[in-house]
């Protein structure tokens, strides 16, 4: 056990992270370490604070107290866009597509510092811009094909189904090559066959070195691919371990049951 720990490298961690909404403490003194190059599963009952943790990690929310680190660099209060450029990408639990834009445009927007994103680009760097655009278009189409949305490339992103929107969010993130991807319930509303594909792709990217932290209620997903598993309840980490350990941990069962009974 000790040996295993010494071999791992922490990519993302928090120290005594607290997030309050008024009186309510959504995260309570939460310290957690995410290992690099692994697929970590984050589970816990509704309202446990999982999404809130994601949002404080990625600069969408500012923590009330505590610190966040990317490798050894403190990133507490860093801006979301800055973190994205540093290789930390994430998706929202409730998809946020750019509704009045095409699905393809939604994906093509992802790469950072595009030449044509500057005011002068379209006028003074036309050829470079065109080259970059066609490269991005090809890559975006490939990714859309992978998430089975290629037939919707020219549809308005606001008009596709909720499950398809989840896939679109994933596609946007896959357009760049982040070193770490946080996914908030990527399989919610996605068909079982597609979920299989998704798991495959995640495994694939993981083999190439991408770290994943995945919130998921789909236990099959968690048990099959995630290791380690972290469980949260009421803003605290209540369990860390392997999926097998998670399965027979009484604390976990209690947390889920408690949440069900209270809710």
């Amino acid at each position: 056990m000790l040996k295993r720990l010494s071999m791992t490298e922490v990519i993302l961690s928090t120290k005594k992270l607290t997030k309050t909404f008024g009186e309510f403490r959504a995260l309570e003194n939460l310290s957690v370490e995410i290992q690099a190059r692994k697929i970590t599963g984050l589970i816990g009952p509704n309202g446990a604070g999982k999404s809130t943790l994601f949002h404080t990690l990625t600069g969408i929310l500012q923590p009330t107290e505590g610190q966040v680190f990317l490798k050894s660099k403190e990133i507490t209060n860093f801006r979301t866009n800055q973190l994205f450029k540093m290789g930390l990408a994430f998706t929202f639990q409730l998809p946020r597509p750019f509704k009045k834009m095409s699905v393809l445009e939604n994906v093509m927007i992802s790469p950072v510092n595009q030449i044509g994103e500057r005011l002068t680009g379209p006028f003074f760097q036309k050829t470079e811009m065109k080259r970059e655009e066609s490269k991005n278009r090809d890559k975006a189409m490939q990714i859309l094909e992978f998430v089975t949305l290629d037939h919707l490339a020219n549809q308005a992103a606001g008009k596709i189904s909720g499950g398809q929107m989840k896939l679109l969010e994933l596609a946007r993130v896959l357009m760049v090559n982040p070193s770490m991807i946080l996914l908030d319930e990527p399989a919610a509303g996605v068909s079982p066959t597609l979920t299989e594909l998704l798991i495959e792709k995640i495994t694939d990217l993981n083999c190439q070195g991408t770290t994943f932290l995945i919130i998921e209620h789909n236990m099959e997903f968690i048990m099959k691919r995630c290791d380690p598993v972290i469980a949260m309840a009421e803003g605290k980490v209540i369990f860390e371990g392997t999926p097998v350990e998670a399965q027979c941990n009484p604390l976990l069962l209690e947390a889920y049951l408690g949440a069900t009974l209270n809710g």
């Binding site: 597509p97 030449i115 044509g116 994103e117 946007r172």
Partner: peptide, 24 residues
Amino acid sequence: RSPFGRLLRAIREDEVAAKSLGKA
């Protein structure tokens, strides 16, 4: 029609989502 325009519309549609994709 350029990526600049795409960026403008993305910001119009959802600023937070645009930030989550590295935009300012």
